[in-house]
Design a protein around this nucleic acid. Structure first.
Length: 260
DNA sequence: ATTGTGGCCTGCCCGC
DNA sequence: TGCGGGCAGGCCACAA
């Protein structure tokens, strides 16, 4: 599913639209439009605008426009981005690799004939105007040690739940959170505020290095723990059986023998 | 305020 | 072989 790594790949692809003028918008699925927008409003606002740049905060992709408010794109779990017929990612975990025309939820057509399309079978993503980036926590890829402390301090919530809270820390999804906690040898069920200084430092170091490494490998499904995320899966390090629990409302695979 | 839960969406996988 | 019940998780509304 698109976590921050995948959305960053989407952003890089979307860079191709910079400098291009929007001719029209197809928004066939009203459910996909946030803020009560409808297709006609969106078309009226966006037509004629020129893409000035792209940015990303966590899992939110933003197109900055000349002549219109910024356009916010959320991809949910199964949303993919296609620009000029080319997909940023061929296949998403937990989503179909097919590209049915009926799954195209939103399309921006440019005057040069190309287009930017969101393909989302499950319709969990959405499109907004002038998205409120301030509601998101700090960006995970550039998080500082003191930033991580602020994310976790004085919280009784499970460590993993806090890492997934986009208002506290932007970008991590279920797979990345499990991979990071496994690498840091920290139990997802620990109280977030209960980490000592050395654990905080370890978590920060692992968080940053894991994001960097998996970015190079190709996405949030390329972690070392990923292949073991199944019933009967064994810890890739110690080969003890992994636990499968609900933590923070998400299916969590972890190694009780190593993660403390 | 903090934390937890359930529902939304729908393709796909597994077991019968 | 076909069928149907779970399952997947990002996000939001709502409850305690």
């Amino acid at each position: 599913m698109p976590e921050l790594l995948e959305v960053e790949y989407y952003r890089r692809l979307a860079e191709r639209t910079v400098g291009r003028r929007i001719a029209s918008v197809d928004a066939p699925d009203a459910w996909y439009l946030q803020q009560g927008l409808d297709a006609a409003q969106l078309e009226a606002v966006l037509a004629g605008a020129v893409v000035a740049g792209t940015r990303r905060r966590g899992k939110l992709l933003v197109l900055d426009l000349d002549g219109a408010p910024p356009l916010g794109l959320r991809f949910g779990m199964t949303g993919r981005l296609v620009v000029d017929g080319e997909a940023a990612i061929e296949r998403l975990e937990y989503a179909s690799a097919r590209h049915e025309p009926g799954w195209e939820r939103f399309r921006v057509r440019f005057e040069d004939g190309g287009s930017l399309v969101m393909v989302d079978p499950r319709r969990l993503g959405g499109v907004s105007l002038d998205p409120d980036v301030a509601q998101l926590g700090p960006e995970a890829t550039t998080l500082t040690p003191s930033g991580l402390r602020r994310v976790l301090e004085r919280s009784q919530a499970p460590l993993k739940a806090r890492l997934l809270d986009q208002a506290r820390l932007a970008g991590l999804g279920n797979l990345l959170a499990d991979e990071i906690l496994w690498r840091a040898r920290l139990a997802p069920t620990r109280a977030a505020g209960g980490l000592d200084e050395s654990e905080l430092r370890r978590l920060h170091r692992v968080l940053r290095s894991t994001l960097r490494e998996l970015d190079g490998r190709g996405g949030s499904h390329t972690g070392d723990l990923f292949v073991a995320r199944r019933n009967g899966g064994l810890c890739p390090r110690c080969e003890n059986g992994l636990a499968r629990d609900q933590v923070g409302g998400r299916t969590t695979y972890w190694c009780p023998a190593e993660q403390r």
